[in-house]
Simulated scan of single mutants.
Amino acid sequence: MSNLNDLTALALPSGSRLEADETENRLSLSLDGQSLVQLRLSRDPELKVQREEGGHLDTSAVWAACYWLFARDPACQRLVWQLDEAPTEALLSGLLIPTQTAGHFRCERTLFWQLPQPWRVQSMTCSYPQQMVISDGKRHPLRPIKPRGEVYRRFDARLGMWISLRTVDIDADLARFNRWQNSARVASFWQEEGSLEQHREYLSKLEADPHTLMLIGSFDDQPFAYFEAYWAKEDRIAPFYDAGDYDRGIHMLVGEENHRGPHKVASWLSALVHYLFIDEPRTQRVVAEPRADNAKMIGYMQDQRFFREKEFDFPHKRAALMALGRERFFDRCELV
């Protein structure tokens, strides 16, 4: 794993590279070798940021500096910017918040990581409009058309690797999915062993289901995991807890043995939850229902701040209801 104390550059999903030269009192940022901004830093009692030469800063430079400083120090919860004038876009988006002191604006870590760009690859400028509908006897919001292709990408500075999510391509992913499901370790929990044709039927059914999104997780563009993200209100889990209209649920499968372990789980599970929260700002909770005896997975989820609310009985298993609220996830958010 990479040491954040040695961090000198961060890769962006756009392909650009943010490079930094930082001292105790100075921060110089460059983007793709071109100087972006020169800043003065003051660290008593909290981190204050000021442009070296004063004048106007655009939103992209403010965002880049916030990203660098938050990634560089996961314990940093707030930056105070001293600016003659804050960029309008930064104020409208919540990147910067006015304070009671003239010329002082704060950037909160908990707000920064809720901004969808640039992590959410297929981003809309506003939420999908709400219309309540009834399907299969369940009343829920009309769901948007499911995306296709890559939906999330972020460089994990701790691992020194890209973590990304894309939608399943049945033809391209079928053999991989079949191999994963037929491994003894996965089969012991998923119980979905079968032939290629059985798995094609399984995936095709979910592809046609508007309440479930199938995702492939990759490290450095190498697929290692399969995830299902579903709208809880329309799912079999809904009768077992007070499901919100925009709650999302997850099923998780790590197929490649070389990507197992707590440090990898911390990366992909936080990325998956992050994607679901920034994909729909009305989502207040992400839930899961692993088998109640899957102590290892439950422990990993608790490490990522999921709360074990209760146990309950599905027809096919005794399950633990694991839940993580938006406020809890973003409060002192540990993404880098």
Rank of each mutant, 00 (worst) to 15 (best):
L10G: 02
D21A: 10
R26C: 14
L27C: 15
L29A: 11
L29E: 11
L31Y: 07
D32C: 07
G33Q: 09
Q34L: 15
S35P: 08
Q38N: 11
R40E: 06
R40A: 05
R40M: 09
R43D: 10
G55Y: 10
L57Q: 02
A71Q: 12
D73H: 04
A75S: 15
W81S: 06
L83D: 05
L91N: 12
T99R: 09
T99A: 09
G103A: 12
H104P: 12
R106N: 10
F112E: 11
L115Y: 09
P116N: 06
R120D: 06
S127Y: 09
I134E: 14
R139N: 12
H140A: 01
P144C: 03
R148P: 08
R153I: 09
F155E: 04
R158E: 07
M161W: 08
I163L: 12
S164M: 06
T167K: 07
V168M: 12
R176W: 12
R176A: 14
F177A: 02
S188D: 07
G194H: 03
S195M: 13
L203Q: 09
L203M: 13
L215W: 05
D221W: 14
E228Q: 03
R236P: 02
R236H: 02
A238Y: 00
Y246C: 10
G249I: 00
I250G: 01
L253C: 15
E256R: 03
H259F: 15
R260V: 08
H263R: 14
V265K: 00
W268F: 09
S270L: 02
S270N: 02
Y275V: 05
I278Q: 05
D279V: 01
R282Q: 10
Q284E: 15
R285H: 07
D293M: 06
G299M: 12
Q302G: 07
R308I: 02
F314T: 00
H316R: 04
H316A: 10
K317Q: 02
R318N: 04
A323C: 15
V336C: 15
